[in-house]
């Protein structure tokens, strides 16, 4: 069973990478008013039988390893 975890820097956290990408895009003529760069992680669970248990496991890894809740938010989606 595959899950997609999207990790984004929190709105209130400065995202220097997003800023740098935004200013490059705007210099090229695009009109971007905000740009933030996050990460996407796809995990494939070995035992895919129990869906609610799986979702809990993915949420736990997202909370404890894949993201830092102080500065990032995450979303989990089933693929």
């Amino acid at each position: 069973m595959k899950y997609l975890v999207t990790i984004m820097p929190r709105e209130e956290a400065l995202d220097p990478q997003g800023r740098a990408v935004q200013s490059t895009l705007n210099r090229l003529g695009f009109k971007v008013q905000d740009c933030r760069v996050g990460k996407v992680v796809v995990v494939d669970l070995a035992d895919g039988s129990n869906e609610s248990q799986n979702l809990e496991a993915v949420k736990k890894m997202a909370q404890t390893v894949l993201s830092n809740p102080l500065i990032e938010t995450f979303e989990v989606r089933t693929l």
Partner: peptide
């Protein structure tokens, strides 16, 4: 650019 996006990706777009 600290290798943002990919190494060299942003510098490649510099004026």
């Amino acid at each position: 650019y600290g290798d943002y996006l990919r190494a060299g990706a942003l510098a490649a777009q510099a004026p």
